[in-house]
Every structure is written in structure tokens, then in C-alpha cells.
Write a protein that binds this DNA or RNA. Structure first.
Length: 576
DNA sequence: CTGGGGAAGGGGCCC
DNA sequence: TGGGCCCCTTCCCCA
């Protein structure tokens, strides 16, 4: 007995869920655009993603290799098996698509692009993976401690500008009959089998990175969001040569080899399919585009230790900024892309705890607020200048203007136009200064107490020539001064696109995002506990080593944490 | 019940 | 951009 359309329907469902952000458990950041998707689907489509989604809920893609527009097509392809014709130009830019497909280890898509290019008589590099420019060593590929991918490759960036997003996603366009989507890979016989939200407390992503962090973990009933051994770095991209590998850390050398796909495995039988292109596996429809990559390449991870902690992580997450985030992420943001409720500049920091209380309401409203809500246009990730609006499933108020300026809410059809517009927002708009003094929230508490550490005038004059006009502080270099001066701004340029909280530094916002997403790259080898910061792990390790480097000079009490010594000292000095 | 200590989370800020 | 360190805060345990 066999349901003929089972796989097709399943994919359609998944695609619809992606459109609504339902059960999406991973965010892919491409430039300033955020795409939400399902780890399982990505993992079933690409060995590259498979290795990455094991560890991360937030994946940054190299913008030299894939632009938001192209990635959107890639994502559509993953979910539908079709490459949709673009709007401007009417045909997808197969060159950039090929670059992206190779980078992301999507051999079928790459093969399709090659066929298309071949047919069009356009040359494409027959080097490794057929990616233009890959003959050169990569500028550098490294995986940050947070396992955020920052692989960099040359080329492609000049091409991607020519590609504009297609108007509609597949399900609203081409006929269902065009789909050939059979059963997913063997390892994951049912795509939904891995998508379960068993840990509602873990940040944003559908119960966070819980079990669905990867095939094997789920099968083992493990929960990455709680504890796991130190991260295995994701497999490097498919295009790394010896030179590239040389730039990786030792641990990355030990990574499983990338899927041996690429050009060698690309059978190119017959002519190119008609547009929208779709994929059939070499063995016909039953060997569909999602099934090809599953198989021996999958790397089951070793068993993870589960040490019960008294404090449940869900509880710990509950103390974080917005415990309701997962709810928002599950239901609140349509179109499969992170909207944000990012407040426009000038607004006070988003009242996160209120949002928590009103989480339900927000999540229900976010579909509307994405375009017109009080929070203004969706906040962006990273640079926070704009957000690329993935569309196609629901009407969007901005129409064709997919790139939205956060400060003013204007929409633009292209990132170039938006960037040009963003330039018109002068720093004066952001740098709100009140005649000689800085108002607003005022300095942070610790900032007030930092006067003690302020350098002496003489020192400042000699060593720190760059003086802040708003306070007495001075710095060695102008960049640091600029960074410091942001602390005086009334506005905070970097909004969290999940809870809308505003930050003065991008790094702080990124770190904050980690807590939403449950990204805890630093694992204790002793107990498996994970941390968002290296420093925390270092601090934590003292629990195991028994080291107590902080000693009270009054009573001789020793502490593992300096902050505990400080609070202890307060006990000594407080009147009571 | 209360206060102190241990441990941890988050944000600010400088390098 | 990320690391490191600071501070504030919270939670839990225990005396």
C-alpha cells in the first residue's frame, strides 16, 4: 500500500509551515535577511546544513557566496524541488545560484544550474564544484566559537545584485503536479519525526535546539539545548582546498569530510527541465531531491551525557529576557522570516518583560505588526538596517518593496536603494545629545561606578588622545571612542529582532540573540553544561577544580566568582 | 523566615 | 567582531 502523493503533500505542508514560521527551528542569516526553516528539511537537503544544524539554531551564511535573494530561491528549491523564475530578470541567475548551491552542498540544484548554464551557452568554472572563483584560495574560512559560519569566498557578490526575488513561492505558483518529492532520506523516514517541541523553554526555536538539533540526537532522545559535549565543528564547506583547511582550527581538521558530492556526482542526463525547474533523482521520482544526500554521510553523534541539574534549563531560560519567545517564533512571524517588532530608533528599549506578559498577544499580532505595527517595520538582524521580507504566502503591506528601512519604515525594492536611503539617515538622528549632558536612560549603573577606573588626566593625555566629548573618558583609538560615544546615545541602533530590545553594540545584541536561540557553544567537559560565553565556562570550571581565586581580605573567605566576592564585600561594608 | 554563599544569566563596556 | 571583564540580578541551598 502506498499513498502516491504522500511525500508531496508532506513537503507542501512543511513549506506552508515554513511560510508561517510554524515549528521552524533554525534561522539562517544571509546578509541582513533572516530566514526561518526546519532543521530537518535543511539537513535532509544538504550535508552542509546537516552538519551545521546539529549545533546551531542560528546560521550565518557567507554573503559572498549567497545573497538573500539567491538564498530565498535556494530555500524555495529545498522545500519544493523547483527553481522558480525570478522576476527581474525573468530567469534566475543560474551563475549565482550555482555558486550558492555548491557552497551549500546542494548537488541537485547545482546540477540543474549547470545544465541551465550549459544550455544557455554560458561558461561556468569546471573547477571544484564548478563554482566561479573557487580556484583561488578562500579569503579565509573560520568557524567562530559560536559556530557561526563565516566562511568567505570570493566572487558571486557582483552577480547577485542582478537577481531579484521572485514574486511568489512555489505553492502559490506552479502546479502541484510539478513536484516530485518522494520520501525523505532513510535516516529520517518522516520529515516531521524530528520536529518536535519538547523543550518549550529553550529560547526561540521551537523548543529551541532541543532534540531536533540533529538526526542522531533526536533519535537518542538527547537535548542539545541542555547539555552536550563540546561542539563538533560543522563540516567545512564543500570547496575547501588544502589551503583552506590550513586556516581551520585543529578541531576542524578533524571534522568529517564534506559530502563527496559536487561535480563528480552530478549526472547530467537529458536536457534541462522546464521552468520552474524541478528535481528528479537519478532513479526517478522516488529518489527525490531530499533523499539524495541522506545516507552514509550522516554523522551520528556520540552519546551525550545527561547530568540532571536541580535547576531546569527551561527555568533558567525563563529568567532570560523573553521567555515567550518560542511562542513568538512558532506562530508569530509569518512568511518564514524573522520579523521583529523592532522599535524604531528613538523609542525606548523594548519593554521585554511586558512583552513576555503579553507574549501571546504579540505573537498573534506579529503578522500584522511586521509591516505596520507599532513597532514599525521588522527589525533586521546584524546590521539592523533593514530586513528582507520574504513573501509569497501572505499579502504584505509593502508590496514589492521588500527591503524596509527600520528607522523610517519606508520600503524599497532593492537593497541598493535601501542602502542609499539609509545613508540619508544622518548620525544626528541617532546621536541625540542634550546640551552638554546626556539624558535618557543615563549611564549604566556600572558606568557610574566606573569613575574609579577612569584614567588620570595625565595618562589620558599621553596614552589616550581620543577624548569623549560627553564625559571624561578617553581612548587609544577613534574606533573605541566612537564605540564609547554610542553609550551616550539615547537611541540604541541594534535591536534584537526577536524581542526588540535595543543595544548599543552589535556584539551585545548578537550575544543576546544567542540566549534567545539557546546557542551555547561552550561546553564543560566535566559535566556537559553549556554556556553562551567562554568566560562563563572558565568561571564554571572552577566549580570542578575547586579553585577559588578570589579572596576576601577582611575575612579570608574565598570565592570562585569575583562577583560573589564583591557581593560578599558588600556584606562586610553594609551598615547592617 | 532570613541571610549568606554558590552558581549562573544577562547587559555594558573596553580592548 | 569577538573576547574578556565588569556589574547587577536571580535562583537555589543551607544554616
Amino acid at each position: 500500500m502506498e499513498l502516491p502523493n504522500h511525500a508531496k503533500q508532506l513537503l507542501l505542508q512543511l513549506n506552508q509551515q515554513r511560510a508561517k514560521g510554524f515549528l521552524c527551528d533554525v534561522i539562517i542569516v544571509v546578509e541582513n535577511a533572516l530566514f526561518r526553516a526546519h532543521k530537518n528539511v535543511l539537513a535532509a537537503s544538504s550535508m552542509y546544513f546537516k552538519s551545521l544544524v546539529l549545533h546551531d539554531n542560528l546560521i550565518h551564511l557567507d554573503t559572498d557566496m549567497v545573497s538573500p535573494t539567491v538564498f530565498r530561491q535556494v530555500l524555495d528549491f529545498i522545500y519544493t524541488g523547483k527553481v522558480l523564475p525570478g522576476e527581474q530578470p525573468a530567469e534566475p541567475n543560474f551563475s549565482t545560484l550555482l555558486t550558492a548551491a555548491s557552497y551549500l552542498q546542494l548537488p541537485e540544484l547545482a546540477a540543474l544550474c549547470r545544465r541551465k548554464l550549459k544550455r544557455a551557452g554560458k561558461p561556468f568554472s569546471s573547477g571544484r564544484a564548478g563554482v566561479p572563483g573557487v580556484g583561488r584560495p578562500a579569503r579565509g574560512q573560520r568557524l567562530s566559537a559560536a559556530s557561526v559560519i563565516q566562511a568567505r569566498y570570493p566572487a558571486a557578490s557582483e552577480n547577485r545584485k542582478a537577481v531579484h526575488p521572485p514574486k511568489e513561492l512555489p505553492q502559490s505558483k506552479g502546479s502541484d503536479d510539478e513536484l516530485f518529492l518522494g520520501a525523505p532520506g532513510q535516516e529520517n523516514s518522516h520529515p516531521l519525526s524530528r520536529i518536535s517541541c519538547k523543550n518549550g523553554g529553550d529560547g526561540a526555536s521551537c523548543g529551541g535546539s532541543s532534540g531536533n538539533s540533529g538526526g542522531s540526537e533526536q533519535e537518542l532522545g538527547l537535548d542539545l539545548s541542555k547539555k552536550s559535549p563540546p561542539l563538533q565543528p560543522p563540516a567545512p564547506g564543500p570547496l575547501l582546498g588544502p589551503d583552506d583547511l590550513g586556516q581551520l582550527s585543529d578541531s576542524q581538521h578533524g571534522s568529517p569530510a564534506p559530502a563527496s558530492t559536487n561535480s563528480a556526482s552530478y549526472a547530467e542526463p537529458g536536457g534541462p527541465p522546464e521552468d520552474p525547474m524541478e528535481v528528479e533523482g537519478p532513479g526517478g521520482p522516488e529518489e527525490n531531491h531530499l533523499g539524495l544526500l541522506e545516507g552514509p554521510g550522516g554523522q551520528p553523534r556520540k552519546s551525550l551525557r545527561h547530568l540532571a541539574r536541580k535547576k531546569e534549563w527551561s527555568k533558567a531560560e525563563g529568567t532570560s529576557c523573553c521567555p515567550g519567545d518560542e511562542e513568538e517564533l512558532e506562530e508569530g512571524l509569518p512568511n518564514g522570516i524573522l520579523g521583529a517588532g523592532g522599535a524604531p530608533y528613538g523609542e525606548p528599549p523594548y519593554p521585554c518583560k511586558e512583552e513576555m506578559e503579553n507574549g501571546k498577544e504579540l505573537s498573534e499580532e506579529s503578522g500584522q505588526s511586521e509591516g505596520e505595527g507599532a513597532g514599525g517595520p521588522a527589525g533586521a538582524g546584524g546590521a539592523a538596517n533593514y530586513v528582507y521580507r520574504q513573501e509569497g504566502f501572505e499579502a504584505v503591506p509593502y508590496g514589492d518593496n521588500l527591503y524596509v528601512c527600520i528607522p523610517c519604515g519606508k520600503g524599497f525594492p532593492s537593497s541598493e536603494q535601501l542602502n542609499a536611503h539609509v545613508e540619508t539617515h544622518t548620525e544626528e538622528e541617532l546621536f541625540v545629545k542634550e546640551e552638554g549632558t546626556y539624558g535618557g536612560g543615563g549611564p549604566a549603573p556600572e558606568e557610574e561606578a566606573e569613575d574609579l577606573s577612569a584614567p588620570s588626566p595625565a595618562y589620558a593625555a599621553e596614552q589616550r588622545p581620543f577624548k569623549c566629548s560627553g564625559c571624561e573618558k578617553s581612548y587609544k583609538d577613534p574606533a573605541t571612542l566612537r564605540q564609547h560615544e554610542k553609550t551616550h546615545w539615547l537611541t540604541r541602533p541594534f535591536p534584537c529582532n526577536i524581542c526588540g530590545k535595543m543595544f548599543t553594540q552589535r556584539g551585545t545584541m548578537t550575544r543576546h540573540m544567542r540566549s534567545h536561540l539557546g546557542l551555547k557553544p561552550f561546553a564543560c567537559e566535566e559535566c556537559g553544561m553549556r554556556f553562551t560565553r567562554q568566560y562563563r565556562l572558565t568561571e564554571h570550571m572552577r566549580v570542578h577544580s575547586g579553585e577559588k581565586p578570589y579572596e576576601c581580605h577582611l575575612c579570608g573567605g574565598k570565592f570562585t566568582q569575583q562577583r560573589n566576592l564583591i557581593s560578599h564585600l558588600r556584606m562586610h561594608t553594609s551598615p547592617s
